[in-house]
Design a protein around this nucleic acid. Sequence first.
DNA 1: AAGTCTGGGTTGATGTGTCAACCAAGGTCA
DNA 2: TGACCTTGGTTGACACATCAACCCAGACTT
Lengths: 163, 163
Amino acid sequence: MAKEPWLGDDEQKAWRSYLLMWKLLETHVARHLQREYGLSASDFEILVNLSEAPTGRMRAFELGEATQWEKSRMSHHLTRMEKRGLIAKVACDARYPEIAITEQGLEAIRACAPAHAALIRELVVDTLGTDRLVSLGDAGAEVATAIEKHRQTTCPPEVRGEY
Amino acid sequence: MAKEPWLGDDEQKAWRSYLLMWKLLETHVARHLQREYGLSASDFEILVNLSEAPTGRMRAFELGEATQWEKSRMSHHLTRMEKRGLIAKVACDARYPEIAITEQGLEAIRACAPAHAALIRELVVDTLGTDRLVSLGDAGAEVATAIEKHRQTTCPPEVRGEY
DNA sequence: AAGTCTGGGTTGATGTGTCAACCAAGGTCA
DNA sequence: TGACCTTGGTTGACACATCAACCCAGACTT
């Protein structure tokens, strides 16, 4: 089967090696979190944001900005998390509910955060060293900008979901 | 709400910027593929592998090695793809079926591959430049090794799924 | 030849993500 | 006041992923 020269050989190789690494990392970390602490990566993301909020509360909307999830995903996931007692929806604004982390939710992140950070540290930070990690972060920012630009030029109508 | 010093400040910032970028990239590319060509990222991955195989056929098992999916995910997804006519399961070995790409499947990747590659090129390759992309690939390989090692030391019993 | 391993593959239940359609409180303007 | 936008949020249907249990052809044992 013919293989088109989509990218240069080195580029292609680098890109694929990178893709593979990321997939490994994602599933490895997610499994760790799930097996040891019963939290999905999504749960973790929400809990981190809430626990870092000064009041421990945020509007679903703010969470959406922070995580870049679409609103329906957010809604579904928050419903599930509420059912599990990790968060609560409190009606204060007489309009839109605020999302509050519960005692149980707090315990959950407190329990897993150190191990999670240690894992990232071991697998990524220590492997790359701070310097390379920082340039990785810079590269990330540049690519993110490129994506943002591309999104605006190629999706002119507001079809872009609201991420 | 207290914030533990999980990672150094620069490290944390770099890591998060990186995470954000990746999320943007993943969803942006997936949406592009889906909207314009009706293929999910998973479909694409399978089709790429099959189309690059000399015979256009692979065992599900080989696909599993290439993609690092678990076998059940593979099975489910192949069933769905077969239903859509992108691939076919052919029983040749009188034991385990081979997965063959169909004419329709071939057309599908041929149709989307150039645009997909161009998108990656624009967003990543051109943004970073070949040099940085290559070092990204190297970094990826190192991290992948670290993950592999970690998996073996921390999951001694064969609970590791078979990825 | 019967008994049991082993490992590739399937299945079903359940959790998660996406799309599109809908709902409702507030704002805008007649 | 009433017809209309927005806009944050929900819902339902469906695609996808994960886990655990199962199936079964061949290899290994005796």
